[in-house]
Structures are given as C-alpha cells and as structure tokens.
Amino acid sequence: MKDDQYIWEEFKNGEEYAISYIYNQNIDFLFFYGKRITKDEDFILDVIQDLFYELIRTKKNLGKTDNIRLYLLKSFRRKLIRELQRKQKQTGSNEEIEIQPDIVFSVEEDIISTEENSKRLEIIRQGMKELNQKQREVLYYKFTLGFDYVQISEIMQVTNDSARQLVSRAITSLKKYFAENNFILMLIFKKLVKK
C-alpha cells in the first residue's frame, strides 16, 4: 500500500518509469474488467488509452491514492459507461437506457467441461441469474476483488449504506436459491473445492 502511494507521487512528479509501472501492473486487469462489460476489444483498448492520456494530462492536479488499481478502476468504469452511452446514441437507439456494467462471471473456465459438469454449471448460472446487474457488479467488487464498502461506494458512486444494502440483498437471494438447490449444489461445491 505504501508502495502504491510512492509510485503515484513519482508519477505525478513526471517520473517516466512510474507510468510504465502503473501501465504494466494494471493493463491486464483493466482489459479483462472491460471484457466483462463489453465484448468489443478495440473499444476497450480505446477507453484505456483515453484513461491514461487523461492521467498524463492532469497529473499535476491528481489527488493522492494508496490504491492505484482502485483509482484507475473508478475512472475507467465512469469512462466505459459514458462511452458506451455515446456509442449507443450513435447507433440510433432513442431509448435512454441507463447503462450499468454487466459483470459476467465465467465460472465455466474453472471447471472441466464434461457432460456431467455442464448440468451443475447450469445450476450455478441459474443462481447468478437470480441476481440483477447491480448485485452482480457489487459482489464482483466485494468477493472477487475483496474491496470494502468505502471502496465499493466510491466506485459505484452510491452511498455507503446503499452499498451495504446491495450486498446483503444479493447474498440473501443467493442463499435462498442455494438452500432450494442445496443437494445438487453440495456436489458441485465438492468438485470446486477439490480443484
């Protein structure tokens, strides 16, 4: 954490190695975060480039951070949403749909896809469907990335309380679903845990 703070200051002072370090440490993460939201890879790379250009342009005025990834993720998410909205307008759809990152979990990557497994996979997928977009996103930050509520509320631009509520509702509906499918799920989890 202290390292992040240091690197960030070095970057703000115009040290060339710092921007290279920040890029290399985060490029894969940002790209695959983008991939969960849209399939258009060139679009994602454009937004990442734009993100770094802006950082470079405004580096003198940037605030402090002790978590560079969180800092990047915040502006990246904002930019992605804005650009997706712009893109949607261009393609002519008149509806003002509020775009939210739709985090798609790729559970299948972790499981060998045999006939037997794919049935179990279907149940997990179904469980994910019980969640809405926002809930999936919030659980991604909470469980996949291990962020706390302050960080989550910063990223999603909601209050601390709403972040808590989102998480707790999501967990409740997951648990309910799992309780109903308990028997089958136990089998799947055994498989997952073994791996």
Partner: peptide, 28 residues
C-alpha cells in the same frame, strides 16, 4: 463456497496489443 462462485478467470492481453497501446501512451 459462496465467495468462490465469484472467482473469475484472469487472462493476459496479447503482448502485441499491450505493446502498441503502450507505445501510444509512452509517446503521449
């Protein structure tokens, strides 16, 4: 078990695309 449901596969961006993007950023 619940947390592990949210485990995601993290890949790597191809070196070529990584380099090309970095070239732009570095020049900028």
């Amino acid at each position: 078990k619940i947390i592990q449901l949210f485990k995601t596969y993290e890949g790597k961006l191809s070196e070529d695309r990584k380099f090309n993007l970095w070239k732009n950023i570095s020049i900028y």
